[in-house]
Design a protein around this nucleic acid. Sequence first.
DNA 1: CGGTTACTTGATCGAGCTCAATTAGTGTGG
DNA 2: CCACACTAATTGAGCTCGATCAAGTAACCG
Lengths: 252, 252
Amino acid sequence: MTIKKKTLNLHELKVSCQNCTLADLCLPHGMRSEEMEKLDAIVVRQQPIQPGQHLYRPGDKSHSLFALRSGALKSYCLTKDGEEQVLGFTLPGELTGMDGLCGGSYESASVVLETSSICELPFNKLEGLCHDLPGLQRQLLNVVGREITSDQHMLMLLGKRSAEERLASFLLSLSTRYKQRSLSATEFNLPMSRQDIGNYLGLAIETVSRLFAQFQEKGVLKVNRRQISILDMDSLKVMVEGCVKQTMGSAM
Amino acid sequence: MTIKKKTLNLHELKVSCQNCTLADLCLPHGMRSEEMEKLDAIVVRQQPIQPGQHLYRPGDKSHSLFALRSGALKSYCLTKDGEEQVLGFTLPGELTGMDGLCGGSYESASVVLETSSICELPFNKLEGLCHDLPGLQRQLLNVVGREITSDQHMLMLLGKRSAEERLASFLLSLSTRYKQRSLSATEFNLPMSRQDIGNYLGLAIETVSRLFAQFQEKGVLKVNRRQISILDMDSLKVMVEGCVKQTMGSAM
DNA sequence: CGGTTACTTGATCGAGCTCAATTAGTGTGG
DNA sequence: CCACACTAATTGAGCTCGATCAAGTAACCG
């Protein structure tokens, strides 16, 4: 990564944007070192957060975007009859909280699935900084645009695709995103339950389970609870044939 | 094409942001008059565009957002197997083209359904102007955030809701949006075909047709081809029970 | 251990898709 | 003005995919 300049500051060394290994996935992507420093100055870093904790809930006053450094998040909203609708998952290097950009409050909730380290980016400071750094402004719009594109892919998936295609697409998306953060594209642990996957993909939990079994029978996957090995990537790609251009962005 | 301001130009007077009746739906919402003037200066206004014409297609280099002054637009993308997936509809006062904010090219297409008047907002000029007008920057993020929120409502709809709920929700959304632009909330013409509605809602065209018939039998609607009268708004609202907070935003 | 939660597997059922035929608009040209 | 073609929309009949209901199994944890 970029080498930091200025005076050494040992205990901050590992949590600055400049040397964050995820910088090229996150907002600082394409920013110059001195720009990153300024961004760095407005980022609020908290202690790691435990599973089950919420970053925000629907109706909370919205004040920040959140960048995930490690762990995994789930976005969801509630229907009036109390059902949960999963909207997406956030992996390291991705941002969440964009639905708070409109209307002053969040419409969705964000909950921690695996112990997570978060960088908080307050809207007001971000706005001010965009004023000084055209690169940041462009990058912010870029990230937000990616979110929109990603949501549109999901609309396509839910509107047109069979259960098999949905799960294949989901797995490919995870694979791609893990690869981007320099993890294995073929071996990974699902941070979410079958329940969450089904809810997200518009399928019953039983259907998800049956599909995993079916994929395994075909030799496409090796599945053990949440441990996934993709044995035949090409088969997966054939299944999503013409559906998902694998850019599925920030909060998938 | 481009309208110059500067010296008075009487016949252009009526197409400035300052006196556009849609200003409070569109980007200028909440902007001061002198701010609007600056925005006005970067807006490209074209001749009305005819049905079937495209504003952009997938893969086109993206350079602008588009604000709709009158008419109606459809956003869609194509699957590799050539199928069309409708992503949303744009009504007057709403913006389209936000998926072009990421990656330098559009991922979707925008096609004119009814003869339309368009205001084009070039990204580069918009960016520059955001630098000068914090209000515009906030409003731009606001509009983009609304788009994300709106997409998330659709994800909920497609993931969880029955055919009946989907169509009811769709009609309520149209009603709300027509009302916002000071048109009748109960009597309007659908700018899109049954095909488009079905595609958008993830339903077969026959299902849409049957539902219209069913709604009519129940006395909820009066339907004549594309002419809709909502007779019993409350029934529609009961059908979507707990699903759609009626904020369905820019490109629905 | 016993209890709880997460997941799997089996059997049945129904909402909505598909296929097919019909009807109603919308031109177009003689 | 009417005949013809063409498209959009409606209506009917049967079938399928995935939901639902139900039971069983495996991991986790006090």
